[in-house]
Deep mutational scan, measured.
Amino acid sequence: MAEQVALSRTQVCGILREELFQGDAFHQSDTHIFIIMGASGDLAKKKIYPTIWWLFRDGLLPENTFIVGYARSRLTVADIRKQSEPFFKATPEEKLKLEDFFARNSYVAGQYDDAASYQRLNSHMNALHLGSQANRLFYLALPPTVYEAVTKNIHESCMSQIGWNRIIVEKPFGRDLQSSDRLSNHISSLFREDQIYRIDHYLGKEMVQNLMVLRFANRIFGPIWNRDNIACVILTFKEPFGTEGRGGYFDEFGIIRDVMQNHLLQMLCLVAMEKPASTNSDDVRDEKVKVLKCISEVQANNVVLGQYVGNPDGEGEATKGYLDDPTVPRGSTTATFAAVVLYVENERWDGVPFILRCGKALNERKAEVRLQFHDVAGDIFHQQCKRNELVIRVQPNEAVYTKMMTKKPGMFFNPEESELDLTYGNRYKNVKLPDAYERLILDVFCGSQMHFVRSDELREAWRIFTPLLHQIELEKPKPIPYIYGSRGPTEADELMKRVGFQYEGTYKWVNP
């Protein structure tokens, strides 16, 4: 592979701008107003304001973009700056750019259920340069409990009458099928589907988006991507930290609602779906819905739930269990780990287990898709061969690698495990991989909904998990304890083995 010439960040961002501006969906010269509902909250200060700053800094926003914060707290732009700027990672050389960014910011205080507050917000936006005809993007960085009041008031008082209007809704989209349907029906009564952007930030990850290209742009994968060759698929999300004093919020939802029903299920769809007619948003989402419709409700015998306990040999936070978090209700049975087996009941995947695993306070930070292939028929190497695996590593250190057998150097035919490896950090030294939120917010500006969740996708996802969630809430089974920093409950490994996964433990990928 030829040595790549190092590029400056300015040059890299210039390439990104060229890609972005050559499309006809990006209205570079139009006025846009980006409204952050819930501007005083954690999500706004840690993710949304920093993301908008990065896009502005790199010249990736339309030229005439204004940012308006809205929340109940009586704040000023200076207050917003004070709480969000520490997350910007701005350099001293960017000081003038930073001043320009905050000059485009404003803030309006108001209630979430008060019509007069929204009329005041609308008047404020109209007073901005060309504000009355601007395109408006409303980001709901809010708890779902206020979605209905907020969307109703936005629709009645704050819509642009000339430009387009788009609304970005953060997960969780309800707690179960019934609450999700209620919320979807409410929002759909106010906005068209092409105006609604239900954001799952995992769909903005580079390697998640790469799944489609790997599958449908490489001839070698087509013939082997089926039940005849693939023994099982494992989708993993692991965090090495616990709730760390923020367990009160987590306890309301648990690990299945927080990660599995959305992030992991979306990745499953991209692995299992048929080739779409095109890369058009609805063509892709149509195929994802077909996959979900082929999955039956989760069966309790295919589920393992766990909850982390303190590690007596650990240090600091590792010595504390979930129930030691003062914000967690006493005696909570909320799971911090889950392993679930699903089956896609169609011709391509009949009988292939899709194993979804996620948890907190585990032994490493990792998100990946792992396809394990069947054993080689007619073994001539005296059971020395391990199964081939194709691994798409989402985070950290984005990579695609194939675990395969090669001859060990020497005189004899002794096979050993090795890999074919594409590590993004080595291959793409001159490429700026956008943060997931950067990519998705740019998608909203461009009107691309491919990486957002459609209402029928959402409904099918909740259909699969709601009976299990209701059973857990009714019966309150005690989750299996696992030690902070471990791989999780051993019962999860036993479940995976029972459905056909072979864990060798003899080879570990190392970032080159």
Rank of each mutant, 00 (worst) to 15 (best):
A6M: 15
A6N: 15
L7V: 15
T10K: 15
T10Y: 15
T10G: 08
G14K: 15
G14F: 14
G14D: 15
G14V: 09
L16S: 15
R17K: 15
E18Y: 07
E18K: 15
E19K: 15
E19G: 12
D24C: 10
D24P: 02
Q28S: 13
S29R: 15
S29E: 13
D30S: 14
D30F: 09
T31D: 08
T31W: 12
T31V: 14
I33T: 10
I33K: 01
I33W: 08
I35G: 04
I36E: 01
M37Q: 08
M37G: 08
M37T: 13
G38L: 03
G38F: 02
A39G: 02
A39H: 01
S40H: 00
G41Y: 02
D42R: 00
L43E: 01
A44W: 04
K45Y: 06
P50E: 00
T51G: 05
I52A: 10
I52E: 03
W53V: 02
F56E: 00
D58Y: 12
G59Y: 03
G59W: 01
L60D: 02
L60Q: 09
L60R: 08
L60E: 07
P62R: 06
P62Q: 05
P62Y: 04
P62H: 07
E63D: 13
E63R: 12
N64T: 08
F66R: 13
F66Q: 10
G69C: 05
G69M: 05
Y70E: 00
Y70A: 07
A71P: 03
A71K: 04
R72F: 03
R72C: 01
R72D: 03
R72Q: 01
S73C: 06
S73A: 12
R74K: 15
L75S: 09
L75H: 13
T76V: 09
V77P: 10
D79S: 12
I80Q: 08
K82D: 10
K82L: 12
K82N: 12
Q83I: 11
Q83H: 13
Q83D: 12
Q83W: 10
E85F: 07
E85V: 12
E85C: 08
P86V: 12
P86W: 06
F87A: 08
F88G: 00
F88N: 05
F88R: 01
K89C: 11
A90T: 14
A90H: 06
A90G: 08
P92H: 14
P92W: 08
E93K: 11
E94Q: 13
L96T: 13
L98A: 05
E99V: 08
D100N: 12
D100A: 12
F101M: 00
A103Q: 15
A103T: 11
R104W: 05
R104K: 08
N105G: 02
S106W: 07
S106Y: 14
S106C: 12
Y107C: 08
G110E: 06
G110K: 03
Q111W: 09
Q111M: 11
D113M: 10
D114W: 09
A115P: 08
S117A: 14
S117L: 08
Q119D: 15
Q119F: 12
Q119T: 14
R120E: 14
R120C: 14
L121I: 10
N122H: 15
H124R: 14
M125N: 10
M125T: 14
H129L: 14
G131K: 13
G131L: 08
G131R: 12
S132E: 13
N135F: 08
N135P: 08
N135D: 10
R136K: 09
F138C: 06
F138P: 01
F138E: 03
L140F: 11
A141F: 00
L142W: 00
L142Y: 03
L142I: 07
P143Y: 05
T145M: 07
T145E: 00
T145H: 06
V146R: 06
V146S: 05
V146N: 05
A149Q: 13
V150N: 10
T151H: 09
K152W: 09
N153K: 13
N153I: 09
I154V: 13
H155V: 07
H155E: 12
E156M: 12
S157M: 14
S157T: 12
M159H: 12
S160R: 08
I162T: 14
G163F: 07
W164L: 10
W164M: 08
N165M: 11
N165D: 10
N165A: 11
R166G: 05
I167C: 14
I167A: 09
E170F: 01
E170N: 03
E170I: 02
R175I: 08
L177C: 08
L177D: 09
L177R: 10
S179Q: 07
S179D: 07
S180L: 06
S180W: 01
S180P: 03
R182I: 12
R182L: 14
R182E: 15
L183V: 05
S184N: 11
S184L: 08
S184G: 07
H186K: 12
H186G: 08
S189F: 09
S189A: 14
S189R: 13
L190Y: 07
L190V: 12
F191H: 03
F191M: 09
F191R: 00
E193A: 01
E193H: 03
D194H: 09
D194G: 10
Y197T: 01
Y197P: 02
I199H: 04
D200I: 01
H201S: 01
H201G: 01
Y202A: 02
L203H: 00
G204M: 02
G204H: 01
K205N: 00
K205Y: 06
E206T: 06
E206H: 06
V208G: 01
Q209V: 06
N210V: 02
L211C: 07
V213R: 02
L214E: 01
L214W: 11
R215C: 03
R215E: 01
F216A: 04
F216C: 00
A217G: 15
A217E: 00
N218D: 04
R219V: 11
I220Y: 07
I220L: 14
F221V: 08
F221N: 08
F221P: 03
G222T: 12
G222S: 15
W225T: 03
N226Y: 06
N226D: 11
D228H: 10
D228L: 08
N229I: 05
A231S: 13
C232D: 00
V233H: 01
V233R: 01
I234R: 12
I234N: 12
L235P: 02
T236K: 05
F237P: 03
K238E: 00
E239G: 04
E239R: 02
E239P: 03
P240E: 10
G242M: 03
T243Y: 06
T243F: 00
T243G: 08
E244S: 13
G245N: 12
G248A: 05
G248Y: 04
Y249H: 04
F250R: 04
D251Q: 05
D251V: 01
E252W: 06
F253R: 03
G254Q: 05
G254N: 08
G254C: 04
